[in-house]
Design a protein around this nucleic acid. Structure first.
Lengths: 249, 249
DNA sequence: TATTATTGTAACATAATGTTACAATAATAA
DNA sequence: TTATTATTGTAACATTATGTTACAATAATA
């Protein structure tokens, strides 16, 4: 038995992970003026859910969250934020995992570690959609982007988790400067405004928005201009962290 | 063996609780214009820490937090807010618990459940100081109010936990109306302002503060007046939840 | 009845935000 | 080349919010 095999067998028994505690990651992306979320489809079950994982016995919680988000997006540098721990007993529902396991030829005993009760630490991630390389379909599942308005029915309380993540993101947009993490390095003021409007779910007035963003003093106007349609070309901007301390203004 | 004895023995083995996950409660009070925090003193050790506890296997996380805060304050209706999960591996430090247990005549084995690694869900509680009836000193520990400026050295990362709770409370004061939970039912505008100033750590201008608070439309002016010193008597106000949805303005 | 300290709020100043308007383009069409 | 079109950048004003000063209105005491 190789070390790798032994490691896998250990993990199959749930050893090597903290008990009763899991991570769920709401990975947001922004593409074609739409807010996207990364979802897992469990093969041969018709079940969908959030990417999740467990914490290794000697691993930092935040590191574990980064690992979970990293595995699916291929990114190593990810803006991640804890937003809530879901710990109601009523959310404990082992049936989806049972379904997923049996659909894959396993017949877990009632006391299988995956069927125990887990609290879940909710993280949301903001990633540059254009940089993400989705993990290829695996044996048990595959992952894909879904428009936030077209999220299928999800296992357990994952729909509620996404809702709460979005609430937290809205607050964060108002208070911090997190929005930029959803955009590529260079973007127009229009891009930024559409992002804000999409996340917040309401229209903003263009002159006020531009004035406010520029007043923050964190946008560098890139000399180059865009080349597009039959109209004045917008400037490109870039986020510069200069005068900001720890994200909070 | 009675059921109670059996229950206690079960808990002594850590059965009946979720593994690897604990709760720490930062219970804030406000008295004589000072922000107080409730701390536990572990007898015969000189150690201090936050009130904490574990989650029963069929208990809601929030219920467990309420239970922890309830046990120490005697209150049943407590404003509680989750603010962060502390999950760094580096915070894992079983020595304080070992000290506490040996000081009380126990000699725990290395793999005693209390000496395992725990993530900790941080909650802060806002309570009406005048209503709290501190739990009487028990065999292992006693609890007391401490001025936030005179917090002793605490076990593990509890000092950092308090700091982060305070940060969260400051944000919450700005965005929500949580401050009232620290005051008795009736209070003067001066009381309210001092509370805000103490928590935020900076002076506020009286006319602007009063105007803003009244504009919120959530303060009912109680007809009665105060009777105090050689000057105009202030009005008493009372918080009315009327036009507020879920605390967020 | 005068004195004192503090309250409640008016009144103004300043800053932030909401709104309208328009000149400045960058592509296309004439 | 020049007009047309759509969109951008921002000025200019309106409105609201906040910061600041000032002062009349007390409630106890002298």
């Amino acid at each position: 038995m190789t070390n790798i095999q032994r490691a896998k067998e250990t993990e199959a028994a749930g050893e090597g992970f903290l008990k009763n505690i899991a991570i769920d990651a709401v990975i947001f992306g922004f593409h074609e003026n739409q807010l996207k979320v990364l979802l897992i489809e469990y093969k041969r079950t018709g079940l969908f859910g959030l990417p999740g994982g467990f914490i290794r016995v000697e691993e930092d919680l935040n590191t574990a969250a980064l690992r979970v988000a990293s595995e699916r997006t291929g990114l190593t540098d990810i803006y991640l934020e804890q937003f809530y721990v879901f710990g109601d007993y009523s959310r404990y529902d082992p049936t989806p995992f049972k379904t997923i396991m049996t659909a894959n030829g396993q017949s877990p005993t009632e006391d299988h570690w995956l069927l125990k009760r887990f609290l879940s630490v909710g993280y949301y991630a903001l990633v540059d959609f254009t940089k993400v390389k989705l993990a290829p379909a695996a044996i048990f599942d595959s992952c894909n982007w879904y428009d936030l308005n077209e999220v299928p029915t999800l296992i357990q309380d994952h729909t509620e988790i996404i809702k709460k993540a979005l609430d937290a993101l809205c607050l964060s947009l108002d208070n911090k400067l997190t929005g930029f993490n959803l955009l590529p390095r260079d973007f127009t003021m229009g891009d930024l405004q559409t992002l804000y409007e999409t996340v917040l779910g309401r229209k903003l007035l263009r002159p006020a928005f531009q004035r406010k963003m520029l007043a923050l003093g964190i946008l560098e106007r890139v000399a180059k201009k865009w080349t597009g349609g039959a109209h004045k070309a917008p400037y490109l901007y870039r986020f510069v962290a200069g005068n900001v301390t720890n994200g909070v203004i």
